[in-house]
Nucleic acid binder design. Structure first.
Length: 427
RNA sequence: GGAGAUGUCGCAUAGUGGCCUAGUGCGCCCGCCUGCUAAGCGGGUUGAGGUUUAAACCUCUCGCGAGUUCAAAUCUCGCCAUCUCCGCCA
């Protein structure tokens, strides 16, 4: 949700922002009209309400006929007040519905265009040349079977397609990655968290995950009206909802949680192995800060993601996601994509977004501000999020990039204390 | 799951239909006073929205939402949260 004042002050910049995203600029004109209607309904209501209060204060002192006359007048007014109040709340709600549907204006620095119009910012490390090494790389599913790292057949038997069990070294890998990620995050100033995976509609919607078709990708439990989170960004964004943060910012949280995704509309895509699944576990970074600081913090989040991937010795590239592919909440998004040898492509393993004040306005999270003259006030917080370690895709990247001709896998040094240097096939 | 109690300003409390424009204490902020500190004295101290060049004014906000009434912190109903007890359970 944007600052409603922008509709009055600078609607043209909002129209322009809509065009950058490839969205309809006419929505802005609807919003301007709805805002005008809302404000005039407020004026009407407040006028009659004020009159009602003034007359009402005279009643206890009045006597006899005078009192009867007053009662008659206020009774009439009372009906008007109710009417005006109802009209006011209808107008306010109509305005809110439109306002919440408006995406966060994309940053002018984000590349223009859709999904395929990203810009590659950097490639780090070099993919192994398996041809030169003299063997064909196996894909992660094959390696996983040889190592006993996960079991997709039984995942399907128990839970259905796109489910799996992590087994043996696979389970150990996740535990080791979790341990490593959390301790790294703590050194960067993040508070470790373990968050609820079920949230109320207000949390899911406040984060921006129910709008514009993205609602189809979310699991909902109708009996309890709760949602399964697709990322711990959701509980972390709602964590400080309806609060004024009095302490210093940034406040940084790193959360471990399961992530559930319906993967609606991805039928037939990435069906092999555990690349695209309905559930995986993830360590997510989340930051509350000021709008002014958010841009630098976004760079820091990207920096930590890169440090993490480099510590895992994975070749990767960084892309600047195009404005049409940002989702409702972000003004800019950087993805890190690890090299997947069996696919001969870079694939997303992490993503960091600057949501500026968009989520915080919806969730009513404010910062305490102090002006130069010492007077205090409030301002919406800015929120940012970034993947630290999405377990399944990280495991895929580690297995495929570290594989040897016999199906064993050489691990990065940081994992040696947990699992030794090499994972050996079990059969 | 069942029974009961509670929910007022940062905290603690007062407030059982109009005198609430929500009082008081603590904390906090600004002044005064005082060798210093403490004490004392005076003032301030929720948040949101609207009208407006501005100054100022107005409206909403007593867990949330409906209702009764000319008028609701106060009465009624529903919901939520917390606490106590019982049952169940990892």
């Amino acid at each position: 949700m944007i600052d409603a004042r922008l509709l009055r002050d600078d609607p043209e910049s909002l129209r322009e922002a809509q065009r950058r995203r490839g969205e309809a600029p006419e929505l802005i004109d609807e919003l301007v009209a709805a805002d005008a209607a809302r404000r005039s309904s407020i004026v009407t209501f407040e006028a009659v309400r004020s009159e009602q209060k003034n007359l009402g204060a005279l009643i206890p002192k009045a006597q006899g006929e005078e009192k009867q006359a007053l009662l008659a007048r206020t009774k009439e007014l009372s009906a008007k007040v109710k009417e005006a109040e109802a009209a006011q709340s209808v107008a306010a709600e109509a305005f809110m519905t439109l306002l919440r549907a408006l995406p966060n204006p994309a940053s002018p620095e984000a590349p223009q265009g859709g999904e395929d119009d990203f810009v590659v910012l950097e490639e780090v490390g070099s993919p192994r040349d398996f041809a030169a090494e003299g063997f064909e790389p196996r894909d992660h599913l094959e390696l996983g079977k040889m190592l006993g790292a996960f079991d997709v057949e039984r995942g399907a038997k128990v839970s259905g397609a796109r489910f799996y069990f992590l087994t043996g070294v696979g389970a150990q890998l996740e535990i080791a990655l979790l341990q490593l990620a959390m301790s790294k995050a703590a050194t960067w100033g993040f508070t470790p968290m373990i968050t609820p995976a079920l949230v109320k509609p207000s949390a899911m919607d406040g984060t921006g995950y129910l709008g514009q078709g993205s609602g189809d990708d979310v699991y909902h439990l109708p009996k309890d009206d709760l949602y399964l989170v697709g990322t711990s960004e959701v509980p972390l964004a709602a964590y400080h909802s309806d609060e004024i943060l009095e302490g210093s910012v940034p406040k940084r949280y790193a959360a471990f949680s399961p992530c559930y995704r319906r993967e609606a509309g991805s039928y037939g895509k990435d069906t092999r192995g555990i690349f695209r699944v309905h559930w995986f576990d993830k360590v997510e970074m989340f930051v509350y800060t000021s709008l002014e600081e958010s841009y630098a913090e976004h760079e820091r989040l990207l920096g930590w993601e890169r440090e993490w991937l480099e510590s895992l010795e994975l070749p990767y590239r960084v892309i600047d996601v195009a404005s049409g592919d940002l989702g409702l909440s972000a003004i800019r998004k950087f993805d890190c994509e690890a090299w997947i040898p069996s696919q001969g492509k870079y694939r997303e393993v992490s993503s960091t977004s600057n949501c500026t004040e968009f989520q915080a306005r919806r969730l009513n999270t404010r910062l305490r501000t102090t002006a130069e003259d010492g007077s205090t006030g409030t301002a919406p917080a800015a929120t940012l999020n970034g993947t630290l370690c999405a377990m399944t895709r990280t495991i895929i990247a580690l297995l495929e990039n570290g594989q040897q001709p016999d199906g064993s896998v050489r691990l990065p040094a940081v994992l040696h204390p947990f699992l030794g240097e090499v994972l050996e096939p079990i059969a």
